[in-house]
């Protein structure tokens, strides 16, 4: 921008830097604090941000080892954090995969084909993608309770049932992928058809490889929402070894049994890998966040 800069400009830049850094300190405070808490001995001790004595007891417990304290008391790990992390990853991966597989061809049809009720179906889809699954919680619970009576691995207290319940996010996926299809020129398929490809071959061998990026984005967003989902998981899973991370970690902070230090280590251990994945995929996520929502 060719703008004449006045004297106050430099000061404004400096001020902006100072404010931004102060703000970053503020939003990072919880993370720094939680790290310091995780290496503090004991579950109640309070102290400064930089701990005076470092103890790895919470970390040992989080990794599932027992720990012998300085006073000789043996502490056993209370909760299987790594198992919860595995449960979460398993459920989120499978539900994201199912979601992408089921929505891709549907999105293609909405973007390219003409058929009966197309407009009303699109509007309906747009409408129901706004409905959060929490609103149907009672129905979801009842349905899976009944299914579980006949097929135990799809009922309450099963990961299969949870994965199916998460498939409800599919309306959003269809919408996001459809938006991306519309950015691809129709001429490409026409060219493929001129070369003798059937409609399905044009889709399968020409278009599908082109939309891999958006499929990755949708997969990632579905994976993230699967990891982060709380309400449905909290009604479907009850026994300790079955929980996902989202419903499991809160068990550390019951008022009757408040394990602040153990929670800190478990939170970092389980949250860090997920955060790293998200950060690495940040670019894709941002494009997905804007792509899906803006194109209406």
């Amino acid at each position: 921008m060719a703008i004449v800069l006045d004297k106050s400009h430099r000061w404004r830049v400096v001020l902006a830097h100072v404010l931004i850094i102060a703000f970053i300190c503020l939003i990072m405070f919880p993370f720094l604090m939680i790290f310091s808490i995780s290496v503090r001995p004991g579950n109640f001790a309070s102290g400064s941000l930089i701990p005076q004595t470092i103890s790895w007891e919470h970390w040992a417990l989080a990794f599932g080892f027992s720990y012998q304290g300085a006073d000789g008391v043996l502490m056993e790990p209370q909760f299987p954090v790594l198992l919860w992390l595995w449960n979460s990853v398993k459920v989120a991966l499978l539900s994201a995969l199912i979601g992408v597989v089921l929505s891709t061809t549907c999105a293609y049809a909405f973007a390219r084909m003409r058929f009966m009720f197309k407009n009303s179906m699109m509007n309906g889809l747009l409408l129901i993608q706004m409905f959060p699954s929490v609103l149907a919680l009672v129905a979801i619970y009842t349905i899976f309770d009944r299914i579980g009576g006949y097929i135990p691995w799809l009922g309450i207290e099963s990961h299969g049932g949870l994965i199916l319940a998460y498939t409800g996010g599919i309306a959003v996926h269809i919408w996001t992928i459809r938006g991306y299809f519309e950015t691809i020129p129709v001429e490409i398929e026409e060219a493929a058809k001129v070369d003798g490809a059937t409609a399905f071959q044009a889709f399968r061998y020409v278009i599908l490889p082109m939309i891999v990026p958006i499929l990755m984005v949708v997969f990632l967003l579905a994976f993230i929402s699967g990891i982060n989902e709380y309400p449905v998981a909290s009604i479907m899973l009850k026994s300790t070894n079955n929980l996902t991370l989202a419903v499991g970690v809160k068990n550390y902070l019951y008022p009757q049994k408040y394990m602040w230090g153990d929670f800190a280590a478990a939170a970092i251990l389980s949250g860090l890998p997920i955060t790293v994945v998200f950060l690495l995929a940040q670019k894709w996520m941002i494009s997905g966040l804007t792509a899906g929502s803006v194109k209406g």
Binding site: P30, A267, G271
Partner: peptide, 10 residues
């Protein structure tokens, strides 16, 4: 990017 259930509990 930090899972919300962890930040909320923190």
């Amino acid at each position: 990017t930090v899972p919300a259930f962890i930040s909320i509990l923190i």
